[in-house]
Write a protein that binds this DNA or RNA. Structure first.
Lengths: 202, 202
DNA sequence: CGATGAACTGACGGGTCAGTCAGTATGGTG
DNA sequence: CACCATACTGACTGACCCGTCAGTTCATCG
C-alpha cells in the first residue's frame, strides 16, 4: 500500500530506488509494530510486492532491519545537522540540539532506539550501527557545547564529558517516559533536562 | 541441569518451591540468551523437567518471563535495601547506592534491564513490572539524598529531581557501555557519574 | 487397601515465518 | 526481431516453538 516515497532521491539507478523504497517501508513497519514484531512479509505487503523481492535485494532479515534502522537514524541526524548549520547564537544552537534529542510527544523514534539497543545485544550488525549513530549524535551535542565554550558563552570544564552526561540523561529519561510512562512525563522531562543543561554550562 | 537453588526459601508448600525453581531457571536462561531468545523448552531443559510442567505452573510464556524478571529485580532490590539499612554516614550510604546501581563489569543484569525496557513497549505485564521496579529503585536513591540533605551533608535543591537525573544518567551510561561497548568504558562511566553526583549534592 | 487428586510426562497439533526456487515479465542491446 | 540479463512473483519448504492433552506416577486420606 501507499508508496509515497518518490521524493528526495535524484536519478539513481532503479535498483537503488527500489532498495530505498524497501528500507523506508521497513522503517514504517518497525515504527508501527516495533523491530521484534516486524516480519519480512509485512514489509512486502506495505509496498505491495512479494517477499521474494525483498530477499532479492536483502539477503537476510537481520541485514534488512539493520540497514533500515541506519537509514532512519542517518536521515534524522542529517536533518539536525542542517538545522544547526543555519546558525544562531551558541545558546540557540544548543537549544536546537537538545530539543531535537528529546522524546517530544508523539515522536516515535525513541521507541526504535530503545528496541535498537536491546537488539544490539544479540545482533552484530545492529550493535555496530547503533554504536556509530549514538556517537555521531553525541558528537553534534559536543560541538555545540565546544563552540559555546570557545565563544565564552558557556563555561563547561569539559565539553565532551558534559555532552555524554546530557545525552545519557536524555536517553534515560526517554526510557522512563516512552517505555513505561511512569511518574516522569513530558513536562517534567523538559524541566529535568533544562536544569541539567544549566548546571553543565554554568 | 544444576538446581543449586535450595537456598533461602523456608518451608513453603511444594508448589511454591517448584514455581520459584522455574522462575530462577528462567532468570538463568534469560541472562545467558536474552529475553527474546528464551524458549519455554530451554527453561524446562535447564531444570530437567518437561515443557508441560512449566505450563502447569505458568499459563503463558509472557507471564513466566515477566514473573521471572520481577523475581530477579526484587531480589537485587532487597539486597540493596539490606546494604543500606546497615547504616553509615549519608555519604557512605549514597556511595553504596550509586555503586550498586552501576553497570559494574561482569554485572549482567543491565542486559536484562535493557531488554526489559524494549519488551515493555509490547507487553503489558512487562510494562507494569519494569515501571514499578524502576520507580522503587529510584526511591532508594531519593531516600539516600533526602537523608543527606536533612542531616546537612548534602545541599540538593530538590532531592527527588536529583535522584531521577542521576538514575537516568546511569541508565543511559549503562546502555552505552553494555549494549554496544562504544567509547564509554567502565572507568569513564565511574568518572562521569562521580562528577554528576558532586554537582548534584553541591 | 482403594480412591482421589495433584504433580508431572512427552508426544503432537497447529500456526508462524525466513528464505528458496522455478518460472514469468520487461526493457535494453546487437 | 531475437536474445539476454535484470527485476520480480508466489507457492512452497523446512524449521521452530507455544500450548494442549491423554495418560502416568505418587502421596495422602478415608
Amino acid at each position: 500500500m501507499v508508496q509515497s516515497v518518490e521524493e528526495s532521491q535524484g536519478h539513481k539507478p532503479a535498483v537503488e530506488k527500489r532498495r530505498i523504497q524497501i528500507l523506508e517501508a521497513a522503517c514504517a513497519v518497525m515504527g508501527k509494530q516495533g523491530i521484534a514484531a516486524t516480519r519480512v512479509g509485512d514489509v512486502a505487503k506495505h509496498l505491495g510486492i512479494s517477499t521474494g523481492l525483498v530477499h532479492y535485494h536483502f539477503d537476510t532479515k537481520d541485514e534488512l532491519l539493520a540497514a533500515a534502522f541506519r537509514h532512519a537514524a542517518e536521515k534524522e541526524l542529517a536533518a539536525l545537522r542542517i538545522l544547526v548549520e543555519t546558525g544562531g547564537t551558541p545558546r540557540e544552537l544548543l537549544d536546537v540540539v537538545i530539543n531535537n534529542f528529546y522524546p517530544a510527544s508523539g515522536f516515535s523514534s525513541w521507541r526504535l532506539w530503545i528496541e535498537g539497543w536491546a537488539v544490539a545485544l544479540q545482533s552484530e550488525s545492529f550493535r555496530q550501527t547503533v554504536m556509530e549513530l549514538d556517537e555521531a549524535w553525541v558528537e553534534v551535542l559536543a560541538e555545540a557545547l565546544t563552540d559555546g565554550v570557545a565563544s565564552g558563552d558557556f563555561s563547561c570544564v569539559n565539553p565532551r564529558d558534559s555532552a555524554w552526561r546530557l545525552a545519557c540523561l536524555i536517553e534515560g529519561l526517554a526510557i522512563q517516559q516512552v517505555a513505561h510512562g511512569g511518574v516522569i512525563n513530558d513536562v517534567e522531562t523538559r524541566r529535568l533536562v533544562a536544569d541539567a543543561v544549566e548546571a553543565e554550562i554554568g
